[in-house]
Design a protein around this nucleic acid. Structure first.
Lengths: 190, 190
DNA sequence: TCACTTCCTGAACACTTTGTTCAGCAAAAT
DNA sequence: ATTTTGCTGAACAAAGTGTTCAGGAAGTGA
């Protein structure tokens, strides 16, 4: 691909990321992004149709990167019999997020937060959907999914909002303790 | 108060509510509100400084109404010893929400949803903050609060988003079952 | 009924932001 | 060296925001 295109694109991404650290997305104007990126107006619009599309694409790239396939639990894993493995997987996920702290934190305000939530939710549903139905609580599986995934995303957002001061291990520990409590002994113990 | 003012104000509220049923708040223009309310431009701006202020005030009135004081648990109540009372209170809250279904549903998209969440969260923290610290899980009290309140609001949002098809009783049942599981016997049984 | 106070009206205005267009220039590709 | 592709920046139309103001309508009180 043309180096010029790459250059403008990253200039735009960097500019937006920098601006997002100080302001909500909806309060940032295209002109500001252009100025910060130091490019021509028409250049911006030849890359992105609108400001919203820019955000979407940028987040998309980032999330794809953060929630990369390597984090997918393999279908064969039986977490209901082995909580340690689930814990390790979730913790690994949080480490990934921590690695992208700068980028993700700047996104967690305003409209962009919703993109994160949607993307995260979709990922978790894919990755853990089956697993969740094995958790033994007497509620509809839709409700269970909503509860488990929702509370996890909430927890992660809360963690990020607080500046990621706790370690991923602490967070996962606390989360699982709230969620699994009373359920620890369901595994058949090896 | 001058009847004219009242009339304009409700005309504006009604107009916005109607528009919110079809579009996100951020996509609605002041002009549309004005047209829908059938008032003059300067009239709008003599009532509200900006579109955002209108939303805030409207939501504020509504939430104050929905989460009215009558729903405050009395300090003396000991929910840790009596889950039935807590359940009844939460169910009552959902009934209140259901009563305002039309208004609340129209608000649950875009920016206005965040106002709801903030308001709801503040209310719950006030109403149930003490109570939560009595729940027996070995995590920090901040985490516990985040988890309990967050998952409850999530559940309510999920319920509203789905069109409030389940009864308040069902929702509270499922919520408490997910939350309290393994903890039912902590009360000292009268 | 007669003031008079308050509110509503709607047009005009300045300003900001958006998204498009286009001619000219610069940098890649072949 | 020639062609293709991308960047520039000014100019433009369109849409929205928030203000102002003169005049009219509707409430209020004597």
């Amino acid at each position: 691909m043309d180096r010029r295109q790459q250059k403008t694109r990253t200039a735009i991404y960097d500019a937006l990321t920098k601006l997002l650290r100080k302001r909500r997305f909806e309060d940032i104007t295209v002109q500001e992004i252009i100025d910060e990126a130091n490019i021509g107006r028409s250049t911006f619009y030849s890359h992105f149709e609108t400001k919203d599309q820019l955000l979407e694409q940028m987040c998309d790239e980032m999330f794809t990167h953060v929630f990369s396939e390597s984090l997918m639990p393999e279908k064969s894993h039986d977490f209901s019999a082995n909580h340690e493995e689930l814990r390790a997987l979730l913790e690994h996920l949080l480490w990934h997020i921590k690695d992208h702290e700068d980028n993700i934190s700047s996104i967690m305000y305003g409209e962009s937060e919703k993109l994160f939530t949607r993307y995260f939710s979709g990922y978790l549903e894919n990755a853990f959907g089956d697993l969740i139905s094995h958790i033994d609580i007497d509620v509809s599986s839709e409700f269970k999914k909503q509860f488990v995934i929702g509370s996890f995303i909430n927890t992660v957002k809360w963690w990020i909002g607080g500046g990621l001061v706790q370690s991923p291990g602490e967070i996962i520990d606390a989360y699982l303790r709230c969620l699994i409590r009373g359920n620890q002994n369901h595994g058949t113990g090896k």
